[in-house]
Amino acid sequence: MHIHAYEKLWLAFAVILILLLIGSVTYGAVGPGVAMVADSEDQIDPGALDEDERFAEPRVEQVGDNHYAAYVIAYQFAFEPSPIVVPENSRVTLYVTSRDVIHGFEVAGTNANTMVVPGEVSEITVEVGEPQEYGLLCNEYCGAGHHGMEGKVHVVSEEEYANLNEGGETA
């Protein structure tokens, strides 16, 4: 079979393009460590979050060296806790669940974005940098008050975080 030289050229272009796409996704996974939201968490009873040790009291707690866990409940029409306060330059794992309907959990303008399904726990780990305030919003239509469903994520300095925690414990 005879193939024109130009046609060979653009076949090669197409293969290069596919390799570029696969290569950059591979780079993203290996270099910056981009991961997907997995279904690794067990199911829970959305009607009994009050009895769940993680979600009875939505909070942020330290779980390792510079590693924090945030247990967040989404409900019509807010997030709890709000604001979610975490210290700067740390690794934060967010465990988010819903006690009523499907919600979204999107830290506005960032890649931290997941669905929140009643009965399921969405787990995403992110690395936060300098002190900053992020908006948090629901991006799945969840009812009449959906448009007002928002929260905050505050990344604060380590001193401020320590002060807040001391205040919380003594209070």
Partner: peptide, 22 residues
Amino acid sequence: LVLAWVYIYYIEFLGRDLVVVG
């Protein structure tokens, strides 16, 4: 296509805060 991909993936996606790493 190459420029759009570089922009979308390396600048818009990886350049944003709070990349999900786990």
